[in-house]
Design a protein around this nucleic acid. Structure first.
Length: 440
RNA sequence: GGGCCUGUAGUGAAGAGGCCUAUCACGUCUCCCUGUCACGGAGAAGAUCGCCGGUUCGAAUCCGGUCAGGCCCGCCA
Protein backbone atom coordinates (compact mmCIF):
# COMPACT_ATOMS: atom_id res chain seq x y z
CA UNK A 1 0.00 0.00 0.00
CA UNK A 2 1.61 3.21 -1.18
CA UNK A 3 2.02 6.12 1.24
CA UNK A 4 2.62 9.65 -0.01
CA UNK A 5 5.51 11.71 1.25
CA UNK A 6 3.19 14.19 2.90
CA UNK A 7 1.73 11.37 5.05
CA UNK A 8 4.96 9.75 6.26
CA UNK A 9 4.67 11.49 9.63
CA UNK A 10 1.29 9.83 10.19
CA UNK A 11 2.86 6.36 10.09
CA UNK A 12 5.63 6.70 12.67
CA UNK A 13 6.97 3.31 13.76
CA UNK A 14 5.29 1.48 10.91
CA UNK A 15 6.69 -0.08 7.80
CA UNK A 16 5.56 1.94 4.77
CA UNK A 17 6.04 1.84 1.02
CA UNK A 18 6.68 4.95 -1.03
CA UNK A 19 6.94 5.27 -4.79
CA UNK A 20 8.54 8.09 -6.70
CA UNK A 21 11.53 9.54 -8.49
CA UNK A 22 15.06 9.90 -7.15
CA UNK A 23 15.33 13.65 -6.76
CA UNK A 24 18.68 13.96 -5.01
CA UNK A 25 21.42 11.66 -3.73
CA UNK A 26 23.82 12.55 -0.95
CA UNK A 27 26.42 9.89 -0.23
CA UNK A 28 28.27 10.37 3.06
CA UNK A 29 30.18 7.12 3.12
CA UNK A 30 28.54 4.83 5.60
CA UNK A 31 25.35 6.85 5.37
CA UNK A 32 23.39 7.82 2.29
CA UNK A 33 20.47 10.18 2.00
CA UNK A 34 18.17 10.17 -0.97
CA UNK A 35 15.17 12.33 -1.62
CA UNK A 36 12.27 10.62 -3.34
CA UNK A 37 9.80 12.85 -5.13
CA UNK A 38 6.13 12.09 -5.49
CA UNK A 39 3.13 14.29 -6.23
CA UNK A 40 2.96 15.47 -2.64
CA UNK A 41 6.61 16.41 -2.17
CA UNK A 42 9.88 14.82 -1.07
CA UNK A 43 10.62 11.98 1.33
CA UNK A 44 14.07 11.63 2.84
CA UNK A 45 15.28 8.03 2.90
CA UNK A 46 18.31 7.08 5.01
CA UNK A 47 20.29 4.13 3.67
CA UNK A 48 23.00 2.38 5.68
CA UNK A 49 23.03 -1.03 4.01
CA UNK A 50 25.82 -1.00 1.41
CA UNK A 51 23.92 -3.41 -0.83
CA UNK A 52 20.94 -1.07 -1.00
CA UNK A 53 23.18 1.88 -1.87
CA UNK A 54 24.83 -0.23 -4.59
CA UNK A 55 21.44 -0.63 -6.29
CA UNK A 56 21.64 3.06 -7.15
CA UNK A 57 25.13 2.95 -8.65
CA UNK A 58 25.12 4.38 -12.14
CA UNK A 59 21.49 5.43 -11.85
CA UNK A 60 20.66 9.07 -12.31
CA UNK A 61 18.17 11.50 -10.88
CA UNK A 62 14.80 10.55 -12.35
CA UNK A 63 15.12 6.86 -11.57
CA UNK A 64 11.74 5.58 -10.44
CA UNK A 65 11.81 3.67 -7.15
CA UNK A 66 9.69 1.69 -4.78
CA UNK A 67 11.07 2.05 -1.28
CA UNK A 68 9.82 0.18 1.75
CA UNK A 69 11.15 1.27 5.09
CA UNK A 70 10.25 2.22 8.62
CA UNK A 71 8.80 5.69 9.16
CA UNK A 72 10.80 7.38 11.90
CA UNK A 73 10.22 10.69 13.61
CA UNK A 74 13.39 12.70 13.19
CA UNK A 75 13.73 16.38 13.90
CA UNK A 76 16.80 16.60 11.67
CA UNK A 77 14.82 15.42 8.65
CA UNK A 78 12.90 17.80 6.42
CA UNK A 79 9.27 17.48 7.39
CA UNK A 80 10.18 15.89 10.73
CA UNK A 81 10.09 12.28 9.51
CA UNK A 82 12.08 9.97 7.27
CA UNK A 83 12.42 6.34 6.22
CA UNK A 84 14.95 4.01 7.85
CA UNK A 85 16.28 0.54 6.94
CA UNK A 86 14.89 0.82 3.41
CA UNK A 87 14.60 -1.84 0.78
CA UNK A 88 14.88 -0.37 -2.71
CA UNK A 89 13.31 -1.71 -5.87
CA UNK A 90 14.05 0.05 -9.14
CA UNK A 91 10.86 0.44 -11.17
CA UNK A 92 12.45 2.36 -14.05
CA UNK A 93 16.19 2.82 -14.22
CA UNK A 94 17.66 6.00 -15.67
CA UNK A 95 21.27 6.06 -16.81
CA UNK A 96 21.31 9.35 -18.71
CA UNK A 97 21.85 12.45 -16.65
CA UNK A 98 19.11 15.04 -17.08
CA UNK A 99 19.81 17.81 -19.59
CA UNK A 100 18.93 20.42 -17.02
CA UNK A 101 19.22 20.42 -13.27
CA UNK A 102 16.13 19.49 -11.33
CA UNK A 103 17.33 19.55 -7.73
CA UNK A 104 18.16 23.23 -7.43
CA UNK A 105 16.64 26.43 -8.77
CA UNK A 106 17.03 26.95 -12.50
CA UNK A 107 18.23 30.20 -14.00
CA UNK A 108 15.44 32.46 -15.23
CA UNK A 109 17.59 35.04 -16.93
CA UNK A 110 15.98 36.22 -20.18
CA UNK A 111 19.14 35.26 -22.08
CA UNK A 112 18.68 31.64 -20.97
CA UNK A 113 14.92 31.43 -21.47
CA UNK A 114 15.46 29.39 -24.60
CA UNK A 115 17.38 26.67 -22.75
CA UNK A 116 14.78 26.65 -20.01
CA UNK A 117 11.95 26.19 -22.50
CA UNK A 118 13.78 23.73 -24.77
CA UNK A 119 14.20 21.45 -21.75
CA UNK A 120 10.71 21.97 -20.37
CA UNK A 121 9.55 18.33 -20.16
CA UNK A 122 12.31 17.56 -17.64
CA UNK A 123 12.88 21.05 -16.28
CA UNK A 124 9.32 21.20 -14.99
CA UNK A 125 10.27 18.46 -12.51
CA UNK A 126 12.32 21.08 -10.75
CA UNK A 127 10.30 21.94 -7.67
CA UNK A 128 10.71 25.65 -8.23
CA UNK A 129 9.18 25.28 -11.69
CA UNK A 130 6.48 22.97 -10.37
CA UNK A 131 5.54 25.65 -7.87
CA UNK A 132 4.64 28.07 -10.67
CA UNK A 133 2.05 25.67 -11.99
CA UNK A 134 0.75 24.74 -8.58
CA UNK A 135 0.04 28.45 -8.19
CA UNK A 136 -1.55 28.55 -11.63
CA UNK A 137 -3.81 25.64 -10.70
CA UNK A 138 -4.74 27.43 -7.49
CA UNK A 139 -5.54 30.61 -9.40
CA UNK A 140 -7.87 28.67 -11.68
CA UNK A 141 -9.47 26.94 -8.71
CA UNK A 142 -10.00 30.30 -7.01
CA UNK A 143 -11.61 31.69 -10.15
CA UNK A 144 -13.91 28.68 -10.32
CA UNK A 145 -14.83 29.11 -6.67
CA UNK A 146 -15.55 32.78 -7.24
CA UNK A 147 -17.77 31.97 -10.20
CA UNK A 148 -19.54 29.14 -8.37
CA UNK A 149 -20.18 31.40 -5.37
CA UNK A 150 -21.75 33.92 -7.73
CA UNK A 151 -23.94 31.46 -9.59
CA UNK A 152 -22.10 31.35 -12.93
CA UNK A 153 -22.35 28.45 -15.37
CA UNK A 154 -19.15 27.16 -16.93
CA UNK A 155 -19.24 26.87 -20.72
CA UNK A 156 -16.86 25.82 -23.49
CA UNK A 157 -17.08 27.63 -26.77
CA UNK A 158 -15.56 26.42 -30.05
CA UNK A 159 -12.06 27.48 -30.99
CA UNK A 160 -12.31 26.53 -34.67
CA UNK A 161 -14.24 29.28 -36.38
CA UNK A 162 -15.32 29.99 -39.92
CA UNK A 163 -14.01 33.51 -39.99
CA UNK A 164 -12.60 36.27 -37.88
CA UNK A 165 -15.07 38.95 -37.01
CA UNK A 166 -14.33 40.49 -33.66
CA UNK A 167 -11.63 42.70 -35.05
CA UNK A 168 -8.48 43.84 -33.39
CA UNK A 169 -6.06 40.97 -33.23
CA UNK A 170 -4.81 38.99 -36.21
CA UNK A 171 -6.07 35.41 -36.43
CA UNK A 172 -4.39 32.16 -37.42
CA UNK A 173 -5.76 30.56 -40.55
CA UNK A 174 -5.75 26.88 -41.31
CA UNK A 175 -7.05 24.44 -43.86
CA UNK A 176 -10.41 22.97 -42.94
CA UNK A 177 -11.31 20.31 -45.51
CA UNK A 178 -10.57 22.72 -48.30
CA UNK A 179 -12.10 25.72 -46.61
CA UNK A 180 -10.30 28.28 -44.49
CA UNK A 181 -10.88 28.16 -40.75
CA UNK A 182 -9.51 30.52 -38.13
CA UNK A 183 -8.50 29.90 -34.54
CA UNK A 184 -10.61 31.83 -32.06
CA UNK A 185 -9.01 35.06 -30.90
CA UNK A 186 -11.50 35.15 -28.02
CA UNK A 187 -14.72 33.60 -26.76
CA UNK A 188 -16.34 37.02 -27.05
CA UNK A 189 -19.35 36.36 -29.25
CA UNK A 190 -20.17 32.95 -27.80
CA UNK A 191 -20.15 34.07 -24.20
CA UNK A 192 -22.37 36.99 -25.13
CA UNK A 193 -24.82 34.62 -26.80
CA UNK A 194 -24.81 32.46 -23.68
CA UNK A 195 -25.87 35.38 -21.50
CA UNK A 196 -29.21 34.94 -23.24
CA UNK A 197 -29.26 31.38 -21.91
CA UNK A 198 -27.55 31.30 -18.53
CA UNK A 199 -27.26 35.01 -17.56
CA UNK A 200 -23.82 34.42 -16.04
CA UNK A 201 -21.18 32.35 -17.81
CA UNK A 202 -17.44 31.82 -17.81
CA UNK A 203 -14.83 29.69 -19.49
CA UNK A 204 -11.11 29.10 -19.04
CA UNK A 205 -9.81 28.12 -22.44
CA UNK A 206 -7.01 28.90 -24.87
CA UNK A 207 -7.22 31.77 -27.27
CA UNK A 208 -5.01 32.43 -30.26
CA UNK A 209 -3.48 35.64 -31.55
CA UNK A 210 -1.34 35.90 -34.65
CA UNK A 211 0.19 39.19 -33.56
CA UNK A 212 3.93 39.53 -34.25
CA UNK A 213 4.53 40.70 -30.71
CA UNK A 214 7.92 39.89 -29.21
CA UNK A 215 7.65 41.06 -25.62
CA UNK A 216 7.73 39.60 -22.11
CA UNK A 217 3.93 39.75 -21.93
CA UNK A 218 2.77 38.24 -25.21
CA UNK A 219 2.19 34.70 -26.44
CA UNK A 220 0.37 33.46 -29.53
CA UNK A 221 -1.64 31.02 -27.42
CA UNK A 222 -2.74 31.82 -23.91
CA UNK A 223 -5.51 31.00 -21.48
CA UNK A 224 -8.23 33.57 -20.93
CA UNK A 225 -10.69 33.47 -18.14
CA UNK A 226 -13.67 34.84 -19.99
CA UNK A 227 -16.70 35.94 -17.99
CA UNK A 228 -19.96 37.51 -19.09
CA UNK A 229 -22.70 38.73 -16.79
CA UNK A 230 -26.27 39.71 -17.59
CA UNK A 231 -28.41 42.23 -15.67
CA UNK A 232 -25.43 44.22 -14.50
CA UNK A 233 -24.29 47.82 -14.73
CA UNK A 234 -20.80 49.20 -15.25
CA UNK A 235 -20.24 50.00 -11.58
CA UNK A 236 -21.15 46.44 -10.56
CA UNK A 237 -18.94 45.01 -13.29
CA UNK A 238 -15.93 46.95 -12.00
CA UNK A 239 -16.59 45.71 -8.50
CA UNK A 240 -17.00 42.12 -9.64
CA UNK A 241 -13.60 42.22 -11.34
CA UNK A 242 -11.96 43.86 -8.34
CA UNK A 243 -13.43 41.38 -5.88
CA UNK A 244 -12.47 38.52 -8.16
CA UNK A 245 -8.82 39.62 -8.19
CA UNK A 246 -8.78 40.05 -4.43
CA UNK A 247 -10.31 36.63 -3.79
CA UNK A 248 -7.89 34.95 -6.20
CA UNK A 249 -4.88 36.60 -4.58
CA UNK A 250 -6.10 35.69 -1.10
CA UNK A 251 -6.56 32.04 -2.09
CA UNK A 252 -3.00 31.95 -3.39
CA UNK A 253 -1.67 33.63 -0.24
CA UNK A 254 -3.53 31.13 1.91
CA UNK A 255 -2.69 27.92 0.06
CA UNK A 256 0.55 28.64 -1.79
CA UNK A 257 2.70 30.18 0.93
CA UNK A 258 5.59 27.83 0.14
CA UNK A 259 5.54 28.75 -3.54
CA UNK A 260 5.42 32.47 -2.78
CA UNK A 261 8.38 32.09 -0.44
CA UNK A 262 10.30 30.02 -3.01
CA UNK A 263 9.94 32.86 -5.49
CA UNK A 264 10.67 35.57 -2.91
CA UNK A 265 7.38 37.27 -3.64
CA UNK A 266 7.13 40.57 -1.78
CA UNK A 267 3.96 41.23 0.16
CA UNK A 268 1.06 41.72 -2.23
CA UNK A 269 -0.52 45.10 -1.62
CA UNK A 270 -4.25 45.06 -2.36
CA UNK A 271 -7.44 46.34 -0.73
CA UNK A 272 -9.43 43.88 1.38
CA UNK A 273 -12.49 42.00 0.20
CA UNK A 274 -15.38 44.41 -0.20
CA UNK A 275 -13.06 47.41 -0.60
CA UNK A 276 -12.55 48.92 -4.02
CA UNK A 277 -9.58 48.71 -6.34
CA UNK A 278 -8.50 52.31 -7.02
CA UNK A 279 -9.73 53.82 -10.27
CA UNK A 280 -7.91 56.29 -12.45
CA UNK A 281 -8.84 57.61 -15.86
CA UNK A 282 -6.48 57.45 -18.79
CA UNK A 283 -6.28 61.23 -18.77
CA UNK A 284 -5.39 61.33 -15.08
CA UNK A 285 -2.66 58.78 -15.62
CA UNK A 286 -1.26 60.62 -18.65
CA UNK A 287 -1.15 63.83 -16.61
CA UNK A 288 0.47 62.28 -13.56
CA UNK A 289 2.97 60.44 -15.74
CA UNK A 290 4.04 63.60 -17.58
CA UNK A 291 4.60 65.38 -14.29
CA UNK A 292 6.56 62.46 -12.84
CA UNK A 293 8.69 61.56 -15.84
CA UNK A 294 8.45 64.37 -18.44
CA UNK A 295 7.45 61.66 -20.91
CA UNK A 296 4.32 62.80 -22.73
CA UNK A 297 1.59 60.43 -23.90
CA UNK A 298 -1.30 62.84 -23.37
CA UNK A 299 -2.31 62.74 -27.04
CA UNK A 300 -2.73 58.94 -27.02
CA UNK A 301 -6.02 57.13 -26.41
CA UNK A 302 -4.32 54.17 -24.70
CA UNK A 303 -1.65 53.78 -22.04
CA UNK A 304 1.96 53.20 -22.98
CA UNK A 305 3.60 50.16 -21.36
CA UNK A 306 5.78 52.49 -19.30
CA UNK A 307 2.67 54.21 -17.95
CA UNK A 308 1.12 50.88 -16.97
CA UNK A 309 4.21 50.02 -14.98
CA UNK A 310 4.43 53.46 -13.45
CA UNK A 311 0.81 53.78 -12.36
CA UNK A 312 0.82 50.44 -10.53
CA UNK A 313 3.89 51.56 -8.65
CA UNK A 314 2.23 54.90 -7.95
CA UNK A 315 -0.93 53.21 -6.67
CA UNK A 316 1.05 50.85 -4.47
CA UNK A 317 2.75 53.78 -2.76
CA UNK A 318 -0.16 56.19 -2.61
CA UNK A 319 -3.40 54.21 -2.87
CA UNK A 320 -2.63 50.95 -1.06
CA UNK A 321 -3.04 48.79 -4.14
CA UNK A 322 -0.80 47.21 -6.75
CA UNK A 323 -3.89 46.88 -8.94
CA UNK A 324 -5.54 49.76 -10.75
CA UNK A 325 -8.75 49.98 -12.74
CA UNK A 326 -8.13 52.25 -15.71
CA UNK A 327 -11.30 53.99 -16.86
CA UNK A 328 -12.11 56.94 -19.09
CA UNK A 329 -11.67 55.18 -22.43
CA UNK A 330 -12.78 57.02 -25.51
CA UNK A 331 -15.77 55.78 -27.51
CA UNK A 332 -14.40 57.61 -30.52
CA UNK A 333 -11.14 55.71 -31.02
CA UNK A 334 -10.17 52.33 -32.37
CA UNK A 335 -10.02 50.99 -28.81
CA UNK A 336 -13.84 51.10 -28.97
CA UNK A 337 -15.19 47.95 -30.58
CA UNK A 338 -18.62 47.75 -32.19
CA UNK A 339 -20.05 45.62 -29.36
CA UNK A 340 -18.86 48.02 -26.65
CA UNK A 341 -21.34 50.36 -25.01
CA UNK A 342 -20.84 54.10 -24.81
CA UNK A 343 -21.53 55.81 -21.51
CA UNK A 344 -25.10 57.07 -21.21
CA UNK A 345 -24.30 60.44 -19.63
CA UNK A 346 -21.06 61.02 -21.49
CA UNK A 347 -21.26 59.34 -24.89
CA UNK A 348 -17.70 60.42 -25.69
CA UNK A 349 -16.58 57.76 -23.24
CA UNK A 350 -16.94 53.98 -23.24
CA UNK A 351 -18.14 51.87 -20.32
CA UNK A 352 -14.89 50.05 -20.39
CA UNK A 353 -11.86 49.51 -18.14
CA UNK A 354 -8.52 47.74 -17.99
CA UNK A 355 -7.42 46.05 -14.80
CA UNK A 356 -3.70 46.53 -14.28
CA UNK A 357 -1.76 44.46 -11.77
CA UNK A 358 1.91 44.98 -10.93
CA UNK A 359 2.53 46.93 -14.10
CA UNK A 360 0.71 44.88 -16.70
CA UNK A 361 -2.81 44.70 -18.08
CA UNK A 362 -4.31 41.42 -16.89
CA UNK A 363 -7.97 42.09 -17.73
CA UNK A 364 -10.07 44.07 -20.16
CA UNK A 365 -13.69 44.56 -19.17
CA UNK A 366 -16.58 46.38 -20.72
CA UNK A 367 -20.32 46.75 -20.90
CA UNK A 368 -21.75 45.54 -24.20
CA UNK A 369 -24.28 47.36 -26.31
CA UNK A 370 -27.41 45.26 -25.84
CA UNK A 371 -29.88 47.41 -27.80
CA UNK A 372 -30.32 45.79 -31.20
CA UNK A 373 -30.67 48.95 -33.28
CA UNK A 374 -27.71 50.68 -31.70
CA UNK A 375 -25.59 47.55 -32.03
CA UNK A 376 -26.40 47.30 -35.75
CA UNK A 377 -25.58 50.99 -36.17
CA UNK A 378 -22.25 50.60 -34.38
CA UNK A 379 -21.38 47.55 -36.44
CA UNK A 380 -22.12 49.37 -39.69
CA UNK A 381 -20.18 52.42 -38.56
CA UNK A 382 -17.30 50.04 -37.94
CA UNK A 383 -17.53 48.71 -41.50
CA UNK A 384 -19.16 45.40 -40.56
CA UNK A 385 -21.93 43.68 -42.51
CA UNK A 386 -24.82 42.53 -40.25
CA UNK A 387 -25.81 39.92 -42.85
CA UNK A 388 -22.42 38.17 -42.81
CA UNK A 389 -22.40 34.68 -41.25
CA UNK A 390 -19.75 35.91 -38.83
CA UNK A 391 -22.13 38.40 -37.22
CA UNK A 392 -25.61 37.04 -37.86
CA UNK A 393 -25.67 34.45 -35.03
CA UNK A 394 -24.48 37.02 -32.51
CA UNK A 395 -26.91 39.66 -33.70
CA UNK A 396 -29.82 37.25 -33.58
CA UNK A 397 -29.64 36.99 -29.80
CA UNK A 398 -30.02 40.75 -29.55
CA UNK A 399 -33.04 40.59 -31.79
CA UNK A 400 -34.64 38.04 -29.51
CA UNK A 401 -33.97 39.71 -26.20
CA UNK A 402 -30.80 40.56 -24.29
CA UNK A 403 -30.46 42.38 -20.97
CA UNK A 404 -27.72 44.90 -20.24
CA UNK A 405 -24.56 42.89 -19.75
CA UNK A 406 -20.83 43.09 -19.58
CA UNK A 407 -17.83 40.92 -18.95
CA UNK A 408 -14.12 40.45 -19.15
CA UNK A 409 -11.24 38.59 -20.70
CA UNK A 410 -8.59 37.83 -18.10
CA UNK A 411 -5.08 36.59 -18.90
CA UNK A 412 -4.22 33.60 -16.73
CA UNK A 413 -0.49 33.45 -17.42
CA UNK A 414 -0.02 37.19 -16.95
CA UNK A 415 -1.75 36.94 -13.60
CA UNK A 416 0.55 34.14 -12.45
CA UNK A 417 3.59 35.91 -13.90
CA UNK A 418 2.89 39.04 -11.88
CA UNK A 419 1.87 37.13 -8.77
CA UNK A 420 5.27 35.41 -8.67
CA UNK A 421 7.35 38.22 -10.15
CA UNK A 422 8.43 36.21 -13.20
CA UNK A 423 10.23 38.26 -15.81
CA UNK A 424 8.32 36.79 -18.75
CA UNK A 425 4.77 35.54 -19.19
CA UNK A 426 6.30 32.53 -20.95
CA UNK A 427 7.71 31.30 -17.66
CA UNK A 428 4.10 30.98 -16.48
CA UNK A 429 3.15 28.71 -19.36
CA UNK A 430 3.98 24.98 -19.35
CA UNK A 431 4.73 24.94 -23.07
CA UNK A 432 4.55 28.52 -24.32
CA UNK A 433 3.86 29.43 -27.92
CA UNK A 434 5.25 32.63 -29.30
CA UNK A 435 6.25 34.17 -32.58
CA UNK A 436 9.15 31.74 -32.99
CA UNK A 437 8.39 28.83 -30.70
CA UNK A 438 6.07 25.94 -31.56
CA UNK A 439 7.81 23.20 -29.58
CA UNK A 440 8.04 21.44 -27.25
C1' G B 1 8.05 45.58 -38.62
C1' G B 2 12.00 49.23 -36.11
C1' G B 3 16.09 50.01 -32.54
C1' C B 4 19.56 47.86 -29.19
C1' C B 5 21.89 43.42 -27.17
C1' U B 6 23.57 38.14 -26.61
C1' G B 7 25.70 33.31 -28.44
C1' U B 8 32.32 29.83 -24.81
C1' A B 9 31.81 21.70 -21.96
C1' G B 10 25.15 18.90 -20.16
C1' U B 11 23.88 23.75 -17.09
C1' G B 12 25.40 28.74 -15.46
C1' A B 13 29.37 32.03 -15.93
C1' A B 14 34.97 34.29 -16.74
C1' G B 15 38.21 35.53 -20.68
C1' A B 16 37.83 41.78 -24.78
C1' G B 17 44.42 40.44 -30.32
C1' G B 18 49.97 36.61 -28.29
C1' C B 19 49.89 35.20 -21.00
C1' C B 20 44.45 30.07 -24.06
C1' U B 21 47.53 23.65 -24.69
C1' A B 22 40.53 28.33 -23.01
C1' U B 23 39.37 29.43 -16.56
C1' C B 24 35.64 28.72 -12.63
C1' A B 25 31.05 26.75 -10.38
C1' C B 26 27.11 23.05 -10.72
C1' G B 27 26.34 18.30 -12.89
C1' U B 28 28.89 13.44 -14.48
C1' C B 29 32.79 9.40 -13.30
C1' U B 30 36.50 7.10 -9.48
C1' C B 31 38.03 7.11 -4.39
C1' C B 32 37.44 8.88 1.00
C1' C B 33 33.61 10.37 4.39
C1' U B 34 27.54 8.00 9.72
C1' G B 35 23.10 13.43 9.94
C1' U B 36 23.31 15.44 5.01
C1' C B 37 19.52 18.85 3.28
C1' A B 38 23.18 24.02 -2.51
C1' C B 39 27.00 18.11 2.39
C1' G B 40 32.47 18.10 2.55
C1' G B 41 37.50 16.35 0.65
C1' A B 42 41.03 14.22 -3.32
C1' G B 43 41.37 13.13 -8.43
C1' A B 44 39.40 12.48 -13.68
C1' A B 45 36.67 13.04 -18.11
C1' G B 46 33.92 16.58 -20.87
C1' A B 47 34.41 22.68 -25.53
C1' U B 48 37.07 22.05 -32.90
C1' C B 49 34.54 29.37 -28.20
C1' G B 50 26.81 29.22 -32.99
C1' C B 51 28.18 28.87 -38.41
C1' C B 52 30.78 30.92 -42.99
C1' G B 53 34.25 34.23 -44.74
C1' G B 54 37.80 38.31 -44.03
C1' U B 55 41.83 41.36 -41.52
C1' U B 56 46.47 39.85 -39.06
C1' C B 57 52.81 36.77 -38.35
C1' G B 58 48.84 35.36 -34.78
C1' A B 59 41.44 35.57 -33.71
C1' A B 60 37.10 32.95 -28.47
C1' U B 61 38.65 38.25 -28.79
C1' C B 62 38.56 42.84 -34.50
C1' C B 63 35.41 43.28 -39.31
C1' G B 64 31.45 41.45 -42.78
C1' G B 65 27.72 37.98 -43.57
C1' U B 66 24.56 34.23 -41.72
C1' C B 67 21.73 31.33 -38.15
C1' A B 68 19.57 31.07 -33.28
C1' G B 69 17.82 33.82 -29.16
C1' G B 70 16.82 38.14 -25.86
C1' C B 71 15.12 43.26 -24.39
C1' C B 72 12.47 47.70 -25.59
C1' C B 73 9.09 50.05 -28.99
C1' G B 74 5.08 49.21 -32.45
C1' C B 75 0.87 45.91 -32.93
C1' C B 76 -2.03 43.41 -29.35
C1' A B 77 -4.54 41.03 -24.23
Amino acid sequence: MRVLSRDIAKHIGKKVEIQGWVHKKRLLGGLTFINVRDRSGLTQVVIQDKDEVEKLRGLQIGTVLVVTGTAVEESRAPGGAELHDPMLTVMTSVTDEPPIEIDKPLGHKPDNLDTLLDNRPIGLRNLQETAIFKVQAKVLEAFRNFFADNDFTEINSPKLLAEATEGGAETFKLDYFGKTATLAQSAQFYKQMMVGVFERVYETNPTFRAEPSATTRHMTEYITIDAEIGFIDFEELLNYAGNCLISVVQAVQKDCAAALKMWNVPEIVLPNVGEKIPRLTITEIHDKFVKATKEDHTSEDDLAPAEERWVCDYAKKNLGSEAVLVTGWSSQSKTFKFYHRANEENPELADRADLLFRGVEITTLSMREHRYDRLIAQLKANGGDPESPGYAPLLSVYKYGMPPHGGWGWGLERTVQKLLGLSSVKEASLFPRDINRLAP
